[in-house]
């Protein structure tokens, strides 16, 4: 019954969240639904209710189609890339007797980079007269317009983001490796388990929780790509890197179609929510079926 005395204090201490949740979650959420059925243009005092017109327009628009597919393309490219690179780093670093912490700190540094800065560096590094392109032209006669084709632009953005997150995920995976008891390996070695079996039967199952975390985090990242795309391609070429955030930003703050952008954002949220839910369930099932969790 002591619990009762605390009611006031509890709500008082929780009040920052209540206030914040109201002003920056519930009200905008409702407002967003309302905006999505209007044709408001962010400035004009008058607007009309247009029913589901925005949604119909959005579902037919090339920008929205692109955003839907580009997100999954990023996922297909970026997730294996960043998991592989962070696994390599973790594999190399986790057993080092000395300087392990120093290495991990070093690998974490890219996480501190602003997407604007990393985009600039890549842009400069791959500019027409850069050493890389001069070399490629001189030696192989290759004249690559890195940001000019949808595929290479998408790959570049994926590489930049993978560079940023590798050290962070390596930190998670390293602590996963460290939680594996070395005696298990020794026992397995006595039983004659070879390298590949060892990885599949021992390392992977025991690493699975850490791997699951990095997978979920990296998949989440693909739904929120903006800065690098804004800085490097503006969503192009030919919508080749047009992410949800890019599309919504363009519609709301460049075309000033607040109503339409809200409809797109609503679609984006539903797609994101469902996709992550399905992928998560799938990963959990995969782990369960193999007896990893």
């Amino acid at each position: 019954m002591r619990a009762k005395n605390n009611n006031g204090m509890g709500w008082l201490f929780a009040s920052p969240y209540l206030l914040y949740g109201l002003i920056f979650f519930l009200i905008p959420l409702g407002w967003s639904f309302y905006l999505s059925i209007t044709d408001w243009n962010l400035i004009a005092p008058v607007f009309h209710h247009v029913g589901i017109d925005n949604f119909i327009k959005a579902l037919k628009s090339p920008g929205v189609h692109a955003a839907f597919f580009v997100t999954f393309k990023f996922m297909i490219v970026f997730v294996p890339m960043v998991i592989a690179s962070s696994l390599i780093v973790a594999l190399v670093v986790h057993g080092l007797p000395r300087f392990k912490g120093l290495f991990l700190i070093g690998f974490f540094l890219p996480y501190l980079a602003s997407g604007v800065v990393s985009s600039f560096i890549v842009k400069g590094f791959l500019s027409y007269n850069s050493p890389v392109n001069t070399f490629l032209r001189g030696q192989f006669g290759l004249d690559i317009n890195w940001l000019g084709t949808p595929l290479s632009a998408l790959l570049l953005v994926a590489v930049i983001i993978a560079w940023k997150f590798t050290g962070y995920y390596a930190l998670i995976l390293t602590s996963g490796f460290e939680s594996i008891n070395q005696e298990i390996y020794e026992a397995a070695a006595i039983d004659g388990v070879n390298g590949w079996q060892r990885f599949w039967k021992i390392t992977l199952p025991l690493l699975y929780p850490a791997l699951f975390t990095t997978l979920i985090l990296s998949i989440g990242v693909t739904f929120g790509i903006f800065t690098e795309v804004y800085q490097l391609t503006g969503g192009g070429p030919n919508f080749g890197t047009n992410t949800w955030q890019m599309e919504i930003y363009k519609q709301a703050f460049q075309n000033l179609s607040a109503g339409y952008a809200s409809a797109v954002a609503l679609i984006a949220s539903v797609v994101t929510f469902i996709s992550i839910f399905i992928i998560r369930k799938f990963l959990e099932m995969w782990g369960k079926r193999n007896g990893w969790t």
Partner: peptide
């Protein structure tokens, strides 16, 4: 719930607020 909610939907109305 809010942590896993796609925040992109809030961008435009938060700007308006």
């Amino acid at each position: 719930f809010q942590m896993f909610f796609p925040a992109i939907i809030l961008l435009v109305p938060t700007f308006l607020i």
